[in-house]
Design a protein around this nucleic acid. Structure first.
Lengths: 142, 142
DNA sequence: AATAGTTATTTCGTGTGCGAAGTAAATTCA
DNA sequence: TGAATTTACTTCGCACACGAAATAACTATT
């Protein structure tokens, strides 16, 4: 039985700290990969490229954030920028060979972790969690 | 009915983006307050102070993060550092008058928002969400 | 009392994110 | 076609978080 007047959960605090701890854990576990970097690797197709706007949309990032992220990933030799043949303003981000290798690892790792994150909860419960996260994301957009 | 093989929700992505969007929304809504600043205001007692270690524990922050946060808040005249009379290594963070005023607003605002965040979900569903967030936070600690 | 070890905090460098403002290419429209 | 607008992206300055290393003060130990 629950306390008849248990205080409402501090959802803002929980959301913030859970995200931070998970991020830190991933960074330790992967020896230096962040969700941002993993996200970029996974968003890129194994062959061909995507332009910055498309990536920003896919990753839910602002343009300046993506510029910095791609800069850092390029410095580490994981992606390259090539000019978009169809639009002179735009550049396409493509994986390097090394990036493609890492992408495979990241994909496996992410799948495993997404499974782990559901452990201890039923499918119905995870669906509720997912729906809540989506609602927060969408309700407080813009 | 759900699709018999609906893909598992991308919990990492959802957690990250929900947190980011909520943070951005709060910052717009409050005209420049972050969850970090609000957290600090609420963690401090209206009278008296708390030392950095206690604050770090209360806010689930590392020591360097807290140093920066307190520096910025002090620059804006919301808190002050005073030497801890009981321990020469330690300093106590106390609210200024202006900080105390803002604390009241932040308290009301946070209560309202925490309520809003539960809207559209039953108490049981929110309890599941809270339990999941706590589990993630604690499972991936350290 | 001197030394060694622990604890509290800061500094430094880095990653990640944003808004505002800048630049350059494409598009619209007069 | 030429000017105005829009779009794609970058640059700059800032906030916030961390780990590693530095500093200062406290505690224990001999």
């Amino acid at each position: 039985m629950d306390n008849p007047t248990s205080p409402p959960p501090r959802l803002i605090y929980l959301l913030t700290t859970a995200q931070r701890r998970l991020e830190a854990w991933i960074e330790r576990e992967t020896q230096g990969m962040s969700t941002a970097r993993i996200g970029l690797l996974l968003a890129l197709p194994a062959e061909g490229g995507l332009n910055m706007s498309g990536l920003a949309r896919a990753l839910d990032l602002g343009a300046p954030s993506l510029t910095g992220l791609v800069d850092r990933m390029a410095k580490f030799g994981l992606v390259r920028r090539i000019p978009d043949p169809e639009d002179g303003r735009s550049s396409l981000v493509v994986l390097t060979d090394q990036g493609r290798d890492l992408r495979q690892q990241a994909l496996a790792h992410t799948k495993k972790l997404n499974g782990q994150l559901a452990k201890g909860f039923s499918d119905e419960e995870i669906a509720i969690v997912a729906r809540w996260l989506e609602t927060v994301r969408d309700r407080y957009s813009q």
